[in-house]
């Protein structure tokens, strides 16, 4: 098993190398001059070139690249010019925030979308099928910043059920000791129920916003996949053998329908992680998406490269997790691995 995983990770090496090269080049060819930006609008030509020399941007591209790779090898991702912090520290602080939000959003989405999709497939053409279609279409057609603002308006402004959308934790509380970086988990691990409740009250609204957006692909894929499997020969055999409908649907059909659903989940997760910038903005969430966007706007190379690299590695790990899940679900995949 571990050898399989190690071998599987080996296959990711070429793509990581590719990502390093492409992000390096891409940040260099983007319009905008970092040195000029940081020197300020009134800086003289000389001041700009001094900053350029200090940042090492006056050297040739290959030299810069070698320096970059050498830094990478020692775990140094450079320093962000905007925050003044090492990029690796920034990412370490912000990635868990995004990951926690995204995972919770995805979890809520799965809990709603998968049963909805199954019911829609089993009772095809019934009211629940139409409900599934309407919910999914509505969720995906509203932009996340709009759903987010709407939820804030309703639950914070009108009903007062949620606290002000200002980050991961109200400033009355100190963040729990970092174990996993997920406040919900860390607070439980340290036994601090108070903080857990506070963290929960902050996170549920943005998580629901993300969930609403990601309902559609999961529900639609569950429905389509279930419909295909329910029409297959072995489901007919199971019915002809007199198995209970619950056994036929959940035990036989659903497990077989899982593979495309897992694939969709992986795609939705990686997509959300990078693309939830708008949700992070609306809820002042100190996540990695908003961090990368700000860095990009200011032509701050190091954080952008760090972000892309972090995403690439995350994607590789995610795909590995999906492959392992595949193997657990489907014995045929295990053989081919």
């Amino acid at each position: 098993m571990f050898r399989q995983i190690a071998k599987r990770l080996m296959t990711a090496i070429p793509s990581i190398i590719g990502v390093i090269i492409v992000t390096f080049l891409l940040t260099r060819v983007l319009p905008g001059d970092t040195a000029a930006y940081f020197a300020g609008p009134a800086a003289s030509e000389q001041a700009i070139s001094e900053i350029r020399a200090k940042l090492g941007l006056d050297r040739s591209l290959p030299v810069q690249f070698v320096a970059y790779v050498q830094d990478l090898a020692t775990g140094n991702l450079g320093t962000s010019l905007t925050t003044g912090q090492p990029v690796i520290e920034d990412i370490r602080a912000r990635l868990p925030a995004s990951a926690e939000l995204t995972l919770l959003g995805l979890l809520i989405s799965i809990l709603v979308a998968v049963p909805l999709g199954i019911l829609a497939a089993v009772k095809q053409g019934s009211w629940i099928d139409h409900l599934c279609r309407i919910v999914a279409t509505a969720g995906v057609s509203l932009p996340v910043f709009f759903t987010g603002l709407l939820l804030v308006y309703v639950f914070y402004y009108i009903l007062g059920w949620a606290p002000a959308p200002l980050g991961r934790l109200d400033f009355f509380y100190t963040s729990p000791t970092t174990i996993t970086g997920f406040y919900l988990i860390d607070s439980l691990l340290t036994g601090d129920i108070e903080v857990f409740r506070a963290a929960w009250s902050q996170i549920w609204l943005p998580a629901v916003t993300l969930a609403i957006f990601s309902l559609a692909p999961i529900a639609r894929m569950t429905r389509a996949s279930m419909l295909a499997v329910l029409a297959s020969d072995f489901v007919r055999t199971a019915r002809a053998s007199g198995l209970k409908p619950s056994k036929v649907v959940m035990g036989y059909a659903f497990r077989n329908a899982l593979l495309p659903i897992i694939t969709t989940l992986g795609m939705v997760f990686s997509f959300l992680l990078g693309a939830n910038v708008l949700v992070e903005k609306v809820f002042a969430w100190p996540g990695i998406g908003s961090y990368a966007i700000e860095a990009l706007i200011t032509s701050d190379y190091a954080p952008v490269q760090g972000f892309v690299l972090a995403m690439a590695i995350l994607y590789v790990l995610l795909n590995l997790a999906i492959d392992i899940l595949y193997g657990l679900v489907d014995p045929r995949v295990r053989i081919e691995a």
Binding site: S232, D233, F234, R236, T237, A238, R239, A240, S241, G242, L243, Y252, R255, N256, V329, D330, P331, R332
Partner: peptide, 20 residues
């Protein structure tokens, strides 16, 4: 079904649950 009357099918491989 299955206890008093049973059925066998064409394309036996597809008639069995592939992952069980």
């Amino acid at each position: 079904r299955g206890r008093e009357m049973s059925m066998i099918f064409q394309n036996p491989r597809a008639a069995l649950n592939p992952i069980r």
